[in-house]
């Protein structure tokens, strides 16, 4: 199977899709209304034009990156990963968790089922925190789809350099409280 979700298709249940989409529709309508009220129709058209250009530029990147994420999801050896990060994996576990976080696809559909599988395989709280922190702050797919295109190479390099130690810091803090997180 393609992962710990077994036969369930990837993605959210239908109801959530419409709810989240509705959030964006309302937000877009409200902010567009506000802009039209302040800057007039010309200002709104200018903003819509810019948003349209952004959409055209980002769409090919998103399509390719989603397929890339699909391959990672299909090829990742979940069982072996859970064994590598199991109890007593020590510093090697931290390193592997950090690496794993970097290559895990950007959406929450992949990372949380993996995290659950890790917990069930006996991975400690600290290793799980290293993994999810690495995924959130250093995850490669999100950098490629969103950050690099929108914010440019210099910014990405600065942010990654400044974030390199975060998973380890989080892991060390997590090790302090790990006893209190019941297993």
């Amino acid at each position: 199977m393609s992962g710990p979700h077994g036969h369930t298709p990837p993605g959210e249940p239908r109801r959530r899709i419409t709810r989240t989409t509705r959030f964006f529709v309302v937000l877009a309508t409200a902010s567009a209304g506000g802009l039209a009220w302040r800057d007039g129709a010309a200002g709104l058209l200018d903003a819509l034009g810019d948003a349209g250009i952004l959409l055209l530029l980002v769409t090919p990147v998103i399509l390719a990156a989603l397929l890339l994420g699909g391959y990672v999801q299909a090829l990742l050896p979940y069982n072996r990963v859970a064994r590598w990060l199991g109890p007593d994996s020590g510093w090697r576990g931290y390193g592997l968790a950090m690496l794993g976080g970097i290559v895990t696809p950007a959406g929450p559909f992949a990372v949380f089922p993996i995290l659950l599988a890790l917990r069930q395989a006996g991975a400690g709280f600290a290793v799980c925190v290293v993994y999810v922190t690495s995924w959130a702050t250093l995850g490669a797919q999100r950098v490629l789809i969103w950050e690099l295109p929108f914010l440019g190479f210099d910014f990405v390099a600065l942010r990654l350099l400044a974030s390199l130690a975060l998973p380890v810091i989080a892991g060390l803090l997590a090790a302090v409280v790990a006893q209190r997180v019941s297993r």
Binding site: T21, F24, V25, L27, A28, S31, A32, G34, L35, L44, A47, L48, D50, A51, L54, L55, V58
Partner: peptide
């Protein structure tokens, strides 16, 4: 599309 319009505005 809605997210991009919202962010821009």
């Amino acid at each position: 599309p809605f997210a991009l319009v919202a962010a821009e505005c």
